[in-house]
Write a protein that binds this DNA or RNA. Sequence first.
DNA 1: TTTTCATAATGAGTTTAACTCATATATACA
DNA 2: TGTATATATGAGTTAAACTCATTATGAAAA
Lengths: 225, 225
Amino acid sequence: MSTKRAKLEQREKRIVVAARSVFLKHGFNKAKMSQIADTAELAEGTLYLYYKNKNAIVKAVVADHWQHITGEADRALSASENSFEQLQALAEYHLTMMVKHWRVIELGYVLYYSHSDDAGENSGVDFKRTYAALFDRLIERGQDKGTFAKDLSLPFLRDLFYGTLEYAARTLILHNKPEDIEVNIVQLMNVLRPHLSGETTAQADTDTAVLKRLERAVRKLERLR
Amino acid sequence: MSTKRAKLEQREKRIVVAARSVFLKHGFNKAKMSQIADTAELAEGTLYLYYKNKNAIVKAVVADHWQHITGEADRALSASENSFEQLQALAEYHLTMMVKHWRVIELGYVLYYSHSDDAGENSGVDFKRTYAALFDRLIERGQDKGTFAKDLSLPFLRDLFYGTLEYAARTLILHNKPEDIEVNIVQLMNVLRPHLSGETTAQADTDTAVLKRLERAVRKLERLR
DNA sequence: TTTTCATAATGAGTTTAACTCATATATACA
DNA sequence: TGTATATATGAGTTAAACTCATTATGAAAA
């Protein structure tokens, strides 16, 4: 029994591996089912015994990638206990990964934007969920430890974090400057640091406090003359 | 002669209008050339006299949208002279537009991720260029006026700005909460403000140093009476 | 007004590639 | 070894983008 199931899973895996190489080489639209079949050394019809259609195959390829990536990112985090350092490590890992595996990320978007009604169960972005959850957990831990402010909006921060990094990845790829990854990370952290530690409002408070205190003192001095 | 050219342009326009409605209703993949032809009241073959292929038609639809959008955004900016207010207005306009016209934005991505070699001249993201340039100009003006710090990285800021807003738009659409647009804008501005005006950690340090020094001086004066 | 010519429109026909299904082969089990 | 069940095959079907030989249109010449 275990042999049978193992055999099936092995063949599924083989299709996914073949599909990835073909998709990466040609992109979704130009990748032909016949090529995938050839690469996997199977007949074209056999593919349809394992996956409903072409979309289902990319979905498997992309899901596989995000799952792998989640494991790696999790390990990258455990290198430090400090929440800021963890955040920086996640940002660094994420941006590096995006630049390196951009073609796979793209496949995910093709899937997402194809609006295939067959999608049914999951719409094709679910893999990202567990991955994105790493960020949420990190922030919440930081809040529990008192490193991060309590009044942060998690959804907004998540959008800021991943949105910025994705656009940064696109820019880096467009200008072919993978060496600028570090620069981007430093800047992102500079933007986030004061916000996360709640300095902004606190800072504004001290500013007005300084001003009021100064005004009082000056008025007193003027009266004394 | 002007009549002839006008007639051709009018027909191009008619195709684009028909195509937009069909694409918006069904999405790129499920939109059929035959439907577009029907809607435009033309034969299918006629479409190909005006546009090379399906991709060329979406490209026209998307280009049309970004051009329109650029005009509107520019007008939204001219309401204020203050750089921070202009930035906020742009963010607000952009996010509102993204949420409202998400389907058109999506069409742009389908085009972008299709990797059609026929793309030739422009890769399909060029429309965005002039639009994104509004942001660059705004920042540079702010720097000239001394409102914004000089040592900002424009590419990074641009990625942060548009990346965050796009992800925020996705989140708003996903949870169907268009009323949260304002909340997102306020938060983005809170993050950007200190960074743009150059209030780095060093700044915060000097602030508290000033406060302490001032407190000492004032106490001394008060003791003197 | 009629003829001519160039330009534009048409839709039946071609092509391509995803997907199906009747048939063939392998595998497990008695 | 024989039979039943599961798995694999690839020729055949289908759908939709795109082509092209034919037809319509409309402006200028006769």
